[in-house]
Each structure stands twice: as structure tokens, then as C-alpha cells.
Simulated assay, not measured.
Amino acid sequence: MPESQLLAGRTAVVTGAAGGIGAALATELGARGMSVVLADIDAEGVQRTAVELRARGMRVIGVEVDVSDPDSVAALADTSLAEFGSIELLCNNAGVLLFGAVADASIGDWRWLASVNVEGMLNCLHAFLPAMRAASGWRHVMNTASTHAFLPDTAHTALYSATKHAVLGISLGLRPELADDGIGVTVLCPGQAATGILDSQRNRPETFGRRGAEPFGTGVIPMAIAPEEVARLAVEGILTAEPIVFALPEYTRDQFRDQVEQLWRLADDALGHPGDPYPESAGSRPAAGA
């Protein structure tokens, strides 16, 4: 089937869809003919976005969900299947961000980040994959990680980066696991995107303790790639079954490459071949530590 027709008539679930990248994904998918379940912990926001998309002729519903709660996610799956009959595309996009040094962070900070960014993805996979695996035809999963999944901590984001490393690792492991079922897996890695993620703690439950510091405020990230462009790149990557899709501002690409190379240089040094990750032969180099 041509890529232009692959999505039409099928159904997608997008978490974190009240705004930002999630809302842009829902819009892009709806414009390509998909029915879309918009899911978010922000009940008012997700309904507002759903109303806007229905006004544009798209077939969508908005559902309140807490992805960190398995029962809430199970209810989302039941609602989605009852409304549309099948789910062909699952976009695990919900995520939160927190800044702070590891030594100063509370265990509550970590548990909150992990409960949404990692456990939220796993809850959705466990809730939706049984029906997706039992179906046939085109099916796909997209998990949203971050460029931080490839970086050491660069600005007091070590805990956040750790959750995104986990999303990347799980996604790359899930890809061959689901291949025999005919289900594709793509991991989306946005960089600096113009979203409200700096205000993540507006939805932080009190059970995780006091709010962390917000050194960069709570506004929309400036000088960033538009969520609509992230969504376009993501959907194009889904259609071509890419394992990884990067979406970041053009002016940050060289810096990102340099940061990734720094990480590889650490590995090179640890392997005993500093500056040369691909020696012509092991025998042409002195043994590590020599």
C-alpha cells in the first residue's frame, strides 16, 4: 500500500495529547485520515484539543488518563477499542521534565519522572499490545524519548536523561520482539521543542513530595523547533518504519553531534583506543593498559 494511504481509515492513540508534540501528532495523524484517541492527564486541555480537531472534520475523542496508573491506562484501552474497534498506532508520547543535581534531588523527584516517562510507556504497552498483536495488517508503536537519550547530563538533567535512556533501550529491544508479529517500533527523539514541558510540575501529584526547582521558568521553550515540525518528521519516520527519528532545531544539530561524539570518546578511552573507535586490527594496537 502506498505510504500516502497507509494511515487512512486506521486508528491511533496518542498520550500527552492536550498540547505540545502530542496535540501536533494528533493533528498530523487526523489530517492523514486516521481516527485519533487523544489522551492526557489534563482533562480540560485534552477535551479542548479534541473539540478543535473535530471542528476541522477529524474523527477524534478526548480521554482523561494518568499513564502512571495501570488501571487508568486499562480503562483508556477499553474506551479506545469500544469507540473505534481496533488500534493500529500507539504513540506513547506523555512525558515530564525536571531539573536539578542528582545529589540534591529527592527520591520523589525520581519516582515521579520514572512513573510517567518509563512506567507510563510500559503501562500503555501492556494495555494495548495484546489486542494489537492479535490483529493483522499494518500496526506500529512510537515511543517518545529525547535527544537526551544519547547524551550525558548537560544541564542538571541527569534524572530526566536516565528515563529517556530507558525509553530508548526499551524501544530498541521491543523492535525485534514485535517484528514477528508484524508490528513496527519507532523511537522519537525531539531536541529543543517549543512546548510547555518546562511547566510539567503543574500536574505533579502531591504524593511525590515538594516541587523541584524551575530554573528556566515555566514558559514555552524559546528558539526551538515547532511541535508541528516534530510531528511531521515523526509521522514520516513511522511511515518508513525508521528505528529512530530525530527532530531538533537546525542550529543545534552540530552541537548535538559534538555531544554524542564526547560520549563515544569516553567509550573509546575506556576501550583503550582513544580517538580511534575503529582500529584496523586488534593486533595493530598495544593492549589496553600497555
Rank of each mutant, 00 (worst) to 15 (best):
A267L: 04
S284G: 15
H156A: 10
V220K: 09
M132E: 04
P286N: 09
A18V: 09
P176E: 06
R265Q: 07
A226D: 10
V73L: 06
R232D: 05
P176G: 06
T147W: 02
P279A: 13
A23R: 13
A103R: 12
P249V: 11
T195P: 05
E3W: 08
L81M: 07
A234P: 02
S200E: 00
W110K: 01
W112L: 02
Q262D: 13
R253D: 12
D180N: 10
L81F: 15
L125G: 07
E88C: 10
L159H: 02
D268S: 07
R48Q: 10
P243T: 07
L6S: 06
V141K: 02
A31F: 05
D78A: 14
P277R: 15
R111C: 03
L129W: 10
A103C: 00
A24L: 03
M121H: 09
V167G: 06
H148P: 00
N143E: 05
D276G: 11
F99G: 08
P215W: 04
V102C: 12
A224P: 03
P279H: 14
A290G: 00
A114T: 13
S86C: 01
D268M: 11
G19V: 00
E214M: 15
A12W: 11
Q201H: 08
E261I: 13
L76I: 06
Q5H: 15
H126R: 14
V230I: 12
G272C: 13
G182W: 06
A43R: 15
T252W: 12
E236N: 11
A226W: 03
G62W: 03
Y160K: 10
M34W: 08
L178W: 09
R211V: 03
H273P: 00
D40F: 06
I41M: 07
G217K: 02
M1W: 06
S281R: 12
Y251G: 03
T15D: 01
A18S: 14
E261K: 02
G219C: 01
A149N: 07
G16P: 07
G196N: 15
E206H: 08
R133P: 01
I244D: 04
G30K: 08
T163Y: 06
